[in-house]
Design a protein around this nucleic acid. Sequence first.
DNA 1: AATGAATGAGCCTTCATTCAT
DNA 2: GATGAATGAAGGCTCATTCAT
Lengths: 232, 232, 232, 232
Amino acid sequence: MRIRKDGENTRQKILQAACVVFGEKGYRGATHEEICRLAHVNTAAINYHFGSKEALYAATWDYLATQMDELYPIDGGVPLNAPADVRLEGNVRSLLLRKADRGELSNFHRIRMREIMNPTGILDHAIASWMQKMRTYTRSVIQELLGPKATNEYVELCEMSLISQCFMAQGPPWKKRKHALWKFDEKDTERLTQHIVQFSLAGIAEIRRRLESETTGTRLQEPLTGDPHDAH
Amino acid sequence: MRIRKDGENTRQKILQAACVVFGEKGYRGATHEEICRLAHVNTAAINYHFGSKEALYAATWDYLATQMDELYPIDGGVPLNAPADVRLEGNVRSLLLRKADRGELSNFHRIRMREIMNPTGILDHAIASWMQKMRTYTRSVIQELLGPKATNEYVELCEMSLISQCFMAQGPPWKKRKHALWKFDEKDTERLTQHIVQFSLAGIAEIRRRLESETTGTRLQEPLTGDPHDAH
Amino acid sequence: MRIRKDGENTRQKILQAACVVFGEKGYRGATHEEICRLAHVNTAAINYHFGSKEALYAATWDYLATQMDELYPIDGGVPLNAPADVRLEGNVRSLLLRKADRGELSNFHRIRMREIMNPTGILDHAIASWMQKMRTYTRSVIQELLGPKATNEYVELCEMSLISQCFMAQGPPWKKRKHALWKFDEKDTERLTQHIVQFSLAGIAEIRRRLESETTGTRLQEPLTGDPHDAH
Amino acid sequence: MRIRKDGENTRQKILQAACVVFGEKGYRGATHEEICRLAHVNTAAINYHFGSKEALYAATWDYLATQMDELYPIDGGVPLNAPADVRLEGNVRSLLLRKADRGELSNFHRIRMREIMNPTGILDHAIASWMQKMRTYTRSVIQELLGPKATNEYVELCEMSLISQCFMAQGPPWKKRKHALWKFDEKDTERLTQHIVQFSLAGIAEIRRRLESETTGTRLQEPLTGDPHDAH
DNA sequence: AATGAATGAGCCTTCATTCAT
DNA sequence: GATGAATGAAGGCTCATTCAT
C-alpha cells in the first residue's frame, strides 16, 4: 500500500528531469538543485536514489540509449535481405530520425556529442560499446557496396564520409542555434535522407571504381587533372 | 634576462597556458589556479592582465584564430583562378591540416567544438564571424562545381556533406581518444584529403546530374530504383 | 533540545548576529565569516538561508524596523485627540527612546545613519518608505502648532529644527563615542525630551507669531526683531 | 631643474583626487586605483608619497580642514564685541555656508559625517580636536544668551539644539539625495540661516525664562499643561 | 622620483554531499 | 523512503601593497 512515496516513481521523475538538464547544460553545468526542482523532488533525492551525480549521469545515458534503440532501430526497419542501397537508406534515415526527435530523446544526442567533444570520462565505456553496435551495421552495408576488393581502410573511409554527414546534418541539436552550421531541422529529415543517400552512393561508387581500376593497373591515388566534370 | 616584471611576457605565458587548459577542460572546467600554475604566474595575474576569466577566454580564441588563419590559409594556397576541383582540394587540405596540427593550435578545435556543443555565449560573435568567412569560400567553390542551376539549397546540402567529413574525419582532437570514431590521425592527412575530395566530387557531380536532368523533365526526388550499381 | 537542523533557529541566529555586525562594521565591513562565527553557524549558511549578503542586509533592516515600530510607536502612546503639544512631546520621547535603546535595536540607527551617509542602495526603498511614515506624523503635529497660515515651507523648516535635535541629541549610538558631540546618554532621555519640547515649542511659537504678523502687513523675511545690529 | 616630475605636484594631485573619491565613496569604498586614475598618476604613487591608504586619508582631512577654517571662519566674520544674537547669526551662517560649498570643500562634510556615523578610527583624534575649537566659540555665545544663571548642562543642551539644526539642515551633502531629509540646498542658505536663528533665539529665550523663574520658586521641569499657545 | 607589474590575503558565492529527522 | 538543513571545499574576483626597474 503506497500512501505517499513510490521509490520507482521518484527515480523515474529524476531520470526524466536529468535528461533535460544534462541535455541542456551538460554534466558540469547541471546542478542537483535544478534537476530536483524540475523533478519536484528533494535536493537530496539524487544521492539517495543514485548515490552520486556521476551515477545519475550514467543512469541517464542508459535510460536514453535503451529507448533510442527501441524506437529507432538501426536498420530503419529495412530487412537484412534488402539490397545494399536500400539498407543504406534505411540506416541513414534511422540516424537522421534519431536526431530529429524533439522529445526526451533529443537529449541523447546532446549528451553524446558533448561527451565526444568534451568527455567527462563517466560514459567512456558506455558510449564506446554503444557506438560499436551502430558502426558494425553500417560497415557491413558499405562493405557490400564497395565490393569484395575493399579493404578495411576503404570501408572505414567511406563509413566516415557517410556517418559524418548524418552526425552533422542537422547541426547541434538546440533550439537556440547560435552556432548552427546549417539551418536544416526536423522537417527536412526526408530531404536530407535523400541527399545524403544520393551523394554518398555516388561517392562510394567512385571509390569502388577506383578500387577496381587500381588492380587493373591504374594508380590508386589518381591526382586531380583537369575538371572531373569533363571526364563524364 | 628578465625573470619577472615583464608584462608582455607574462601575458603571453598566460595565453599559452590558457590554450592548453581551456582546450583540455573547457571554459567551466578550467580554473585560474590551474592556468596560472601552468604559466608559472600568480593566480591574480589573469584578472590583472585580462580583467576576467571571460576576457581571457575571448583573448585565447583570438590568439588561436589569428595564428590559425595565418598558418593555414583557407584556400590551402591554391590561387583563385585555379579550376574548382583544385580549389576544393586546397580547401579540404587546409581544413584537415588545421585539425591535424598537434601543437598549440590543436586547442583551437577543442575550444570551437565545445562552443558548438556547449556554448558559453562568450565567443558567440567571434565564432559566428569566423565561420562566416570560412563558409563563404567553400560555398563559392561548390557553387561553381554544381553549375549555374544550383539553388542555395543544393549548395548548402553539398557544403554540409563536404564540411561534415572534414570536421569529423580525424575525430575529436584529444590524445586519449576514447570516443574516437576513426583511427585516422595527422599522418593520414593526405590520404584523407584524397578520399574526401574523390568521394565528394563524385557526390557533387551526381547532384549536378540530377539537377540538370530535372529541368529536362525528370523528377527531382528520384527514388532509389533498382540497384544503382546496375546503372553503371 | 535542538542543536542543529532547525531552519528557523539558524535563520534567527544569523539575523541577530547580522544586526550586530552590520551595525558595527557597516555593510561593506561586515563579512560572512564574522557574522556566521558570531551566530555559530557555517559560513555558507547565509547564502543558504538568505541567498546573498544583500538579501540578508535587507532582511536585517526589516527585522529591526518591525521590532522598532512595535516597541516604540511613533506617537509615543499619546492618543490622536490629545493637544498638539502633548502629541509633540510623545513624538519626541518616542524618537529619543528609539535612540536610547541599548539592545539589539540600537543597531537600527547605526544602519540607518550609515545608509544616509554612505548609501549602499540596497535599502533605498525600504528606508524611504519607513521615513515617509515617520515624517507624516511629525508634520501633522507641527502643522497644527503652526496654525492654518503655515505653508509647507514653514512646516518643513520647523520639522527640520525639531527632528534634527532628536537625531543628534544622543550622538551616534556607539559605546566608544570618540566623536560624541554631547555626553547625553540613555539615562538623560527624559531630560532631553523636556528640553527639546520646551525649546522647540518656543521656536515654533515664534515662527507662528511671525507668520501671523506677516499677514497684517509685516514683510515675510522679517529680520531679527529690531535689527540686532541696531539693537545693541 | 624639473624636467618631468614634481613631487609636490603629484602629491597635490593625489590629495585633490582623494577628496573627491573619499568624499563620494568613503574610506573603504575608495580604491587606490580610482584615486590615482582621477589624479592621472600611477597606482603606486599613493604608497610612494603617503606610505599607506590610511596616511593619505589623514592627509586629506588636514588638507580640507585647513582650507575650511581659512575660507569660512567660525565667527562668520562678526567681531567678538558684537551683540550675542548677531554673533549667533554669524556662527550659524558660517556653519551653513560650509555645508553649502559646492567645490572641493563639500567633501569635508561627507568625510566628517561618515566618520561620525561610521568611524574608521583613523581620524578620531583629528576630528575631536577640530570640533573642540568649533564648539568653544558656539558655547561662549550661547552662554551669554542664556545669562549668568546657566549651568554647563543648559549651555550644552542649547548648543545641541542649535548645532543639530546646522548639521542637519541641508541633509546629507550629495547630489543624488535618495535619503534626503529635506529638500533645502545651497540656494536656501540665507533662508535657513534666518529660520534657525529665529527659532533658536526663541528657544534659548524660553530656556532662559525658565532658568530664571526656577530660582524664583517655579519648578524647573514645568510640565506641559494645556496648549502653550494659550499661554502666550 | 616614479611606475608598471606582480602578489597574497581575503571575500562572496556555488554546489555536491552529508546529516538528523 | 524521503527530506530540509547544513556544510566544507573550491572558485572567481578585488585590492592594498610590494617589487624591480
